[in-house]
């Protein structure tokens, strides 16, 4: 494996933004990093264009979640649940500027596939969700994947093969990935995600290689239900045909044969107990962050062959993970507790 890239831990205040919860991050054109920040309490959204840049408040308003997606060129789409859909350009002097505001109602999730941005609008009880391309003009909505009785579509992502994928998760466990094909939606993981381990929920998913990299594990709610239960998170690489590899996690039997963690049983990525929290694709490699049982974060790089390399350790859980254009890995730290 080539030389490890540097790992830089960045705390939000160093970005000159107010303490808050980092919600999303993106690479923006030539800028190394963009960070979306949800201010705690005030429920405001801010956008920071680069590591050294000043905060730019885009809008105020009550919101519980947000999503960004990058567009080719300088623009990015920003959406808040229940709020407007905004297109922001960062090339304007004075920082990011809202250049377009759509009154269509923000989608619950945005996914970037090739040069196309897709939005997903939840269907509500008994109603199939809808999807529509957002770029360059919002397209007509069309039926989205139909979740199972206990599931909901929680995120969109592009597969490495250029297909739109929708992640379905239910309240307590299990997930499915739906892929949009010319003749409609197909469940990619009906059997492939059948599991006998602790991948009760998708915690992160990014396009990688020809498919998707999925980090799965127990979220905070799940952990609270079974206090003290030790677990190891896992990272799966889902292939378009439904087959999968385990990069890190427990070995298991599967319809495709015995799956052994590609990282190897002796690597820290497999041995360490904890849960993977963030993923970021970096060319042929995958960067993954794990929150360990002892409360610190480990950052790993996986090669396309699944070989794992520990990039470094951060003494506290991280809020997000990003990879700069030069390969530098940024671990975004949470803000200090507000007095």
């Amino acid at each position: 494996m080539p030389e490890a890239p540097p790992l830089i831990a960045v705390r939000a205040p160093r970005l000159s933004i107010e303490p808050g919860l980092v919600q999303q991050r993106l690479l923006l054109g030539d800028e190394p990093l963009a960070v979306g920040l949800m201010k705690k309490g005030a429920k405001k959204m801010a956008l920071v264009a680069d590591v050294a840049g000043a905060p730019v408040a885009l809008w105020d308003g009550a919101a519980a979640s947000a999503a960004f997606a990058r567009q080719e060129g300088p623009g990015i789409w920003c959406a808040m649940a229940g709020g407007p859909l905004l297109r922001v350009e960062t090339a304007a002097s004075g920082g990011p500027t809202v250049v377009e505001r759509l009154a269509t109602g923000a989608p619950a999730a945005i996914g970037h596939v090739g040069n196309t941005l897709w939005g997903l609008w939840p269907g509500g009880p008994g109603k199939v969700p809808e999807v529509a391309p957002l770029d360059p003009e919002p397209g007509a909505r069309q039926p989205g994947p139909e979740p199972g009785p206990a599931g909901r579509i929680s995120a969109l992502a592009g597969t490495g093969a250029g297909a739109l994928a929708a992640l379905e998760a239910d309240a307590r466990g299990g997930f499915r990935v739906h892929v949009l094909e010319p003749d409609g939606w197909r469940v990619m993981t009906e059997a492939g995600a059948a599991r006998y381990g602790f991948n009760a929920a998708v915690v992160a998913a990014v396009p990688w290689g020809a498919g998707l990299a999925v980090a799965s594990g127990m979220d905070l709610t799940a952990r609270a239900r079974v206090p003290g239960l030790a677990h190891r998170g896992e990272i799966l690489r889902l292939a378009p045909d439904g087959d999968f590899d385990i990069l890190a996690g427990e070995l298991r039997v599967s319809p495709w044969g015995l799956k052994v963690p590609l990282a190897g049983a002796r690597t820290e990525a497999v041995r360490e107990r904890g849960g993977f929290t963030h993923l970021s694709a970096a060319g042929p490699n995958l960067i993954a962050a794990m929150e360990t049982e002892s409360g610190h974060a480990l950052v790993f790089r996986f090669s396309a062959e699944g070989e794992a390399q520990t990039l470094g350790q951060v003494a506290e859980p991280i809020e997000d993970l990003a990879v700069g254009p030069d390969g530098t890995v940024f671990a975004l730290l949470g803000s200090p507790a507000e007095p």
Partner: peptide, 14 residues
């Protein structure tokens, strides 16, 4: 209920 259901979920049962 939550305990049992979550434990079951950990083992692949819904």
């Amino acid at each position: 209920r939550d305990y049992l259901a979550q434990l079951a979920s950990c083992l692949g049962y819904q």
